[in-house]
């Protein structure tokens, strides 16, 4: 197991290098001179000032040197200051990351609690009215745009209750109930699509497992249905579901951007978006790379968990 984890960690290095290279090149190969974009079309910015900016940003160095300098700065945890606000990028990200992470975890929790029991029932009572409803519901859930749900949720609470969640993030360590009250709507809006994905996946794998020979054996030796389903089938059926949940948890780090914008929460996604609109490149690069790194690490953790739960994987 330790060997497997070590090997997977080693394999992560080329991926991370590739990712950072891609992000770096995407911004450098952009049409137009980055200095022109940063200095703006203001004619008062003299060419001397432009040269100064160019020098200060290290843009006169050859590309490989620039890349290494940038990577070095990122690794030491100091990716520079925001071009717009002058606040260190590290500080901006440290403030916004907890919001996004909390949203992603809460949404995953809400989705899983609802989806897995529904998926099991749908598979066990296959082809009944209940199963049909669950399947249709799953497809509808897949098709609901989360930004629409979030907008409607906000509309309903403000119209009906005359209340909107605060946009200033309340830390759960300061005020847990205030924090939950603030996050429950955005997390639920984010959860619906995931709920549909998990439900469909649970149903499919459950059906597959219920068709296996060892389930027939379990039934043949006279075990009660409940025991067959929960003790024998569910354990194996849930393994692929765990992978999907983990992968989707990572994806939520990105999708939450939309919900953050709607609820005015200052998460990483929202920060990234503002940075893109402001052409605040150091912030764009750092936010993208950090989000992608977390995403990759979560996926790795899921793979390791998968190998732990299903020993057949390790040999492959």
């Amino acid at each position: 197991m330790a060997l497997y984890v070590a090997r997977r960690l080693l394999m992560l290095i080329p991926t991370l290098v590739g990712m950072s290279l891609l992000i770096f090149l995407m911004l450098r190969l952009l049409p137009g001179d980055i200095v022109d974009i940063l200095a703006g079309p203001d004619p008062q910015t003299t060419s001397a000032a432009r040269d100064q900016l160019r020098e200060a940003m290290g843009l006169n160095e050859p590309l490989p040197v620039q890349y290494l300098q940038w990577l070095g700065a990122l690794l030491t945890g100091d990716p520079g200051d925001s071009l717009r606000s002058g606040i260190p990028v590290a500080e901006l990200l440290a403030n916004s990351l907890p919001i996004t992470v909390q949203l992603a975890f809460m949404a995953t929790l809400i989705a899983t609690v609802v989806a897995i029991p529904l998926g099991i029932v749908s598979a066990v009572r296959r082809d009944t009215g209940l199963d049909f409803l669950a399947r249709i519901g799953g497809l509808i859930g897949l098709s609901l745009p989360n930004f629409w749900l979030a907008t409607l949720a906000l509309l309903v609470t403000s119209k009906v209750f005359g209340w909107v969640p605060s946009t200033r993030y309340i830390s759960p360590f300061d005020d847990l109930s205030g924090n939950l009250l603030q996050m429950i709507l955005p997390a639920t809006a984010l959860a619906v699509q995931l709920m549909a994905i998990e439900m469909r996946m649970t149903r499919t794998t459950m059906l597959e497992v219920l068709n296996q020979d060892y389930i027939r054996t379990a039934r043949a030796k006279g075990l009660r249905n409940r025991l067959v389903v929960y003790r024998h089938a569910l354990r194996n059926a849930l393994i692929p579901v765990i992978t999907v949940v983990g992968f989707q948890l990572g994806a939520l780090l990105g999708t939450s951007a939309i919900v953050e914008v709607i609820f005015g929460l200052n998460g990483v996604g929202n920060t990234l978006l503002q940075a893109i609109f402001n052409r605040d490149y150091p912030l764009v690069q750092a936010a993208t790379l950090y989000l992608a790194t977390i995403f990759v690490l979560i996926n790795l953790a899921v793979d390791v968990l998968y190998a732990y739960l299903d020993p057949r994987i390790k040999q492959a």
Partner: peptide, 20 residues
């Protein structure tokens, strides 16, 4: 190469590419 592209959360990559 596809692994590297896959290593980004989809919406983040879409936001960055279309934004840039």
């Amino acid at each position: 190469f596809t692994d590297v592209l896959f290593a980004f959360p989809g919406l983040v990559l879409a936001i960055v590419i279309s934004g840039l």
